[in-house]
Design a protein around this nucleic acid. Structure first.
Lengths: 159, 159
DNA sequence: TACGAAAGGTAGAATTTTCTACCGTAATAA
DNA sequence: TTATTACGGTAGAAAATTCTACCTTTCGTA
């Protein structure tokens, strides 16, 4: 991970660091993968937004914020930007008496999403070859347990 | 993780999301833990910097950047800021003919670090109770394998 | 009933982080 | 010898993200 490895192994061998490192690695991967195989017109986070809207069409802005670990104000800006670029359309809709914005994927957005989705299926099948169902189950169990231990020390609230 | 759970389990059950979620969880944990038990005068990243300097006294700014997954310019600003606040002292030093800044922890910084280190030992011992040595080994193995699979798909370069 | 909290959303300021460009030295290779 | 690249570092602009405050409606409950 760092050139002069011997100098840092001590710092890098703990669990929390490894998780952090992997998450960062994954972020870099997503950026590069997307640039190479999907579209330069959209960021990885924006792709996740398309994914979420596709699967939960009435997902709200606040829910998207939680899903992406960002503030709801920020997500609002991203959505507006995506609308400006013609990837989605934001339609005001009433739920009861309260006005909610429903995000609708345009044909342009749908095309990007379809292409990306196909590519991600490819990754998924590669992962399936490398990790058995039991491995994945155990892996996720470890992650959950790690969070539970942290949560037992202080009450963690995600923003 | 999100109130209306049923709506999102589908989106959240994949491996990459779980890792991302755990890393974010850990970040929130560090912030809250530090506020509560260590010191409000220093951020979690700054604590890692103190930790790194303590263990590798001649660590360079660029190396710190890689360790923390940030840009070297940004780390330079953080270090300057820490110097202004009296937590470290930056001394220009020559390595060969080239000038390098050596970061020295002041007594104030050392005190914060010692307190934090003691608290983190506590977390470590709790983790040791919940995860056996074999568990930790397996957990880290999973994480490494996950990165390797991604890396086989595109060549991932961390910034 | 009335009050406060929670949820959906926006605006603008403030902060954080990244992105270029630089400067100078060292090492390597054509 | 002369490029070229990598390393250590900085400055300033640009972009990303968060913070605060605000508006409106709903919901639970005292």
């Amino acid at each position: 991970m760092i050139k002069n490895i011997e100098r840092f192994t001590q710092l890098q061998e703990n669990l929390a660091y490894q998780i952090d490192y992997t998450a960062n690695f994954n972020r870099s991967f997503r950026r590069e993968f997307q640039m190479k195989y999907i579209s330069k017109d959209i960021s990885p986070d924006e792709f996740v937004i398309l994914y979420a809207i596709t699967n939960v069409p009435d997902i709200t802005q606040s829910e998207l914020a939680k899903l992406l670990f960002k503030g709801k104000a920020h997500i609002g800006k991203i959505l507006n930007d995506m609308e400006t670029r013609g990837i989605i359309k934001r339609a005001a809709e009433t739920r009861g008496n309260i006005i909610i914005k429903r995000n609708i994927i345009t044909p342009v957005g749908a095309e990007i999403y379809e292409k990306g989705n196909k590519e991600f299926q490819r990754i998924k099948s590669i992962m399936k070859k490398e990790f058995s169902d039991d491995d994945i189950k155990q892996f996720i169990l470890y992650l959950r347990k790690f969070r539970e231990v942290l949560n037992s020390i202080v009450d963690v609230k995600l923003k």
